[in-house]
Amino acid sequence: MIRIACAQMQIHHTMKENYEKTLLYIKKAHEAGAQLICFPEGQLTRYIAQYKGLSTADIAIPPDHPYIQGFRKACNDMHIIGVFSLALLKKDKIYSIMMVIDETGAILATAAKNHIVQAPHFYEQDYFTPGNDGFLVIPTTAGKLGLIVCFDRHYPESFRTLALKGADLVITAVANETTEPQDVFQWEIRIPAFQNSYYAVMINRTGREDSMDFCGQSLVAGPDGAITALAGSGEELLIADLDYQTSHRLRREKQYLSLRRPDVFDL
């Protein structure tokens, strides 16, 4: 059994405040007995992409930034795996990424968002560069973790790719508003969990940021598509226990993956 903690955060105005809150959540997750903690999209900064063409000077950090070193130390001190969601600056380009740091403080992987949206309240193409790493599965002591960054979840191929790569758990960091269809967001997580017989997590922000009101409602879906854990609309640490033996059994019984015929798909 693996215990996961989902830090449904309200994002403050300064990066320092959000960094310190992240460290606090890591400590709380450790105290709750979690082996793994994950965070919502862009956890260190307010959601600048709700506006067109603002300065990018203060929205991203480089890979060697002290805050990342602080996350590494906290994971090591608390003996917990962290899945962080950051705006990362690399060679003058900004990527929306998820970073896995293991319980020894080692950075295991960085996965960038592959599809960058450009729509009202989500003018992300003004700020972010798309990644080209595809969809990654990271072996850890808490299982094989698949990573999906927000908008990439709207492509069902992302979830299936991670299943074919052997994911036990797929974590999706998001920034969902109250004005968006919350029932559909649940389906987008629950249906892939059912179709691929694995656990799936969606971890969201909460609270109001200028013209955007983030809805919370983070969830963990089981390999049968049922809701394992569901957060409310406010700030909280959502805890769920995952039984990978159940997901492996269901994968054998349902045969959704083993009976696939890739030759009939014209993709």
Rank of each mutant, 00 (worst) to 15 (best):
I2L: 14
A5R: 07
A7K: 05
Q8E: 14
H12M: 05
Y19K: 03
E20C: 01
L24R: 11
A29K: 04
E31L: 13
A32W: 02
Q35K: 13
A49F: 06
L54W: 02
A57M: 01
I59C: 02
H65M: 01
P66H: 04
Y67V: 05
Q69H: 10
F71K: 02
F71I: 02
N76H: 14
N76I: 00
V83E: 04
V83N: 07
V83C: 12
V83Y: 10
L86F: 14
L88Y: 03
L89K: 15
K90L: 10
S96W: 10
K113V: 02
N114F: 00
E124A: 12
P130R: 08
V137D: 06
I138V: 15
T141F: 01
R160Y: 12
T161G: 03
D168S: 09
V174K: 03
T179S: 14
T179Q: 10
Q182D: 14
V184D: 11
V184R: 11
V184A: 12
F185N: 09
I189M: 10
Q195V: 00
S197R: 13
R208E: 08
E209Q: 15
C215P: 00
A221P: 09
G222W: 01
G222M: 06
P223S: 12
I227C: 09
L230K: 14
L230R: 15
G232T: 07
G232H: 03
L237W: 06
L242I: 11
L242G: 03
D243Q: 09
D243H: 12
R249K: 12
R249E: 12
L250G: 02
K254S: 08
Y256T: 10
L257H: 09
